[in-house]
Nucleic acid binder design. Structure first.
Lengths: 202, 202
DNA sequence: CGCTTTTCTGAGACTCAGTCTCAAGTGGTA
DNA sequence: TACCACTTGAGACTGAGTCTCAGAAAAGCG
């Protein structure tokens, strides 16, 4: 019964086609200048069908098989590992497990996020590594309730680290995102940099 | 020549009226269920006029005289103060400097942000305390370039702290936002909580 | 005060995102 | 094959956001 039906294959193909053409059009014409009709026409389906596969125009950029991998990798880290280190290792492991095709797609998405502000905003907003999401994961990992203050603060810092990594990548294009994120997390092991640095007069 | 013309007074009044009615309608009917027409009608202006004052429906929630105050307060902190402490003090100072009217407006906005998800998202996205914004401020304060890695990481952590504070406030309604933010920043002075905590098996 | 110039407003047309309904098409299954 | 469930396309509809244009109102000036 685990047979992949024709229907499922067709759906997967349609979804992939929609995303492929959408990303291409966004790159060529820009996000705003590309209408849903354009995307649907390029993928040779109707407008209705587009919205059946993606709730909004933004979501087409977000279709992402990567985020769930981070979570799975995190759960696979052995007990006893320090939390921050566990996060870093699971990031690396998840990324390493990507096949070539998905890694390329991921790069395209990151590139679009850097190039087109609207998309960057959406990615930031709906990505994994939202505070709530991280908090849930971390709470389980350290055996505390999800509304524990330490847990929430830690989750906030992780989200912040992701934001910092995005800025660093944006300012130095070509720098690999995952490595940067892992690096920033590493910087936090010994405390927050500059926290105690005295300010100087402007 | 600093005379406030009749035109300017009318414009300020119209803008305030639009915001007042918009917030009231959002609270009563919800954000999505309130159309721009509704707001314009309530404020007794045309739809066109609404968009002349606010570029989008979301922006009517964001009209905000508070954010610039944080920045000003920060610049007023004496040299030599440790960076993290300087940030905390300027937050407190800025909030204390608000007059009653603005503090009430701020509370309403925070309440809407907690109650209505769309508004929360927009506030998070366009608030001050974006990484870039904080990085610029911090870079000046410590006399380093804005793309210095330490500066960006620190700015990311501050943004993350704000996110954490928002989650904490959301989970414990009534908790004052500013105090929570200042508290979270304080937690980071001695390093990131839980960073070294060993994970346990799920 | 009256006249000209500048600014602001309202009306309405237009594009596009997103929702909904309904009828027709297509794969799954007996 | 025949039936059922799922999927699609067509098209109507609402509402956000943009744009243009003509008229009203304020500012500036003689």
């Amino acid at each position: 019964m685990a047979r992949v039906t024709l229907r499922e294959r067709k759906k997967a193909r349609t979804r992939a086609e929609l995303q492929r053409h959408a990303l291409r059009l966004f790159r060529d014409r820009g996000f705003a200048a590309t209408t849903v009709d354009d995307i649907a026409a390029a993928a040779e389906v109707s407008r209705s069908t587009f919205f059946r596969y993606f709730p909004t125009k933004e979501d087409v950029v977000l279709l992402d098989d990567v985020d769930p991998l981070y979570e799975a990798a995190f759960r696979a880290i052995p007990a006893g590992t320090p939390l921050l280190e566990a996060l870093r290792r699971s990031m690396r492991a998840a990324f390493a497990s990507l096949d070539e095709e998905k890694r390329v797609l991921e790069e395209v998405r990151m590139d679009l996020a850097r190039t087109i502000p609207e998309i960057g905003a959406v990615l930031r907003e709906r990505n994994a590594f939202g505070v709530d999401h991280v908090a849930t994961l971390v709470a389980q990992a350290v055996g505390r309730p999800a509304d524990d203050e330490d847990v929430v603060v830690f989750a906030g810092v992780v989200s912040g680290a992701r934001l910092a990594a995005q800025v660093l990548v944006q300012r130095e294009p070509g720098r690999p995102y995952i490595e940067t994120f892992v690096h920033v997390l590493g910087r936090l092991a010994d405390g927050v940099p500059l926290a105690g640095a005295p300010i100087v007069t402007g």
